[in-house]
Design a protein around this nucleic acid. Sequence first.
DNA 1: GCCAACGTTGGC
DNA 2: GCCAACGTTGGC
Length: 159
Amino acid sequence: MSTTPSKDARQYWLMKSEPDEASIDHLQAAGELPWTGVRNYQARNFMRDAMRVGDGVLFYHSSCPEPGIAGLAEVSSTAYPDETQFDPKSPYFDPKSKREEPRWLHVDVRFVRKTPLLSLAAMKRDPVLAHMRTLQPGNRLSITPVTPEEWAHLHALLT
DNA sequence: GCCAACGTTGGC
DNA sequence: GCCAACGTTGGC
């Protein structure tokens, strides 16, 4: 019996979105959204190198009156080029990116369900979440991995 | 609106 | 490869 995790094991992520731009309600209405606009290499690499279809997603509202987890979603595609990087009218336009060699990728995310808001303040108060990547001081990544233990704990809270 | 922390850019 | 300047994130 191997103790190393299967490479097929479901993984978990926390993904931040500004609700003005894409809230859990938008995702619910659309059913599925392309997670465009990521312009950070670490976050891109998570999507490109680590994410798999079916991975669990904590949908987090950031830069808003009540930041926190607002729902559950799941990864519904592998990574593919982000069209907004080629669109001069888009705020996410990247003049240095070439079609032959796209810099920015994204996955699609599918709605699972809304949850009661679990506020950032409540997350910070929870000792089980003390080491959560997104809660570490100075973290600014919009996509961070979540451990199976953190996921199980949060899943139980988010009923 | 403030500001701390971090990431990116580009000159050297 | 260093590092200063600048831009962005995101809570408060």
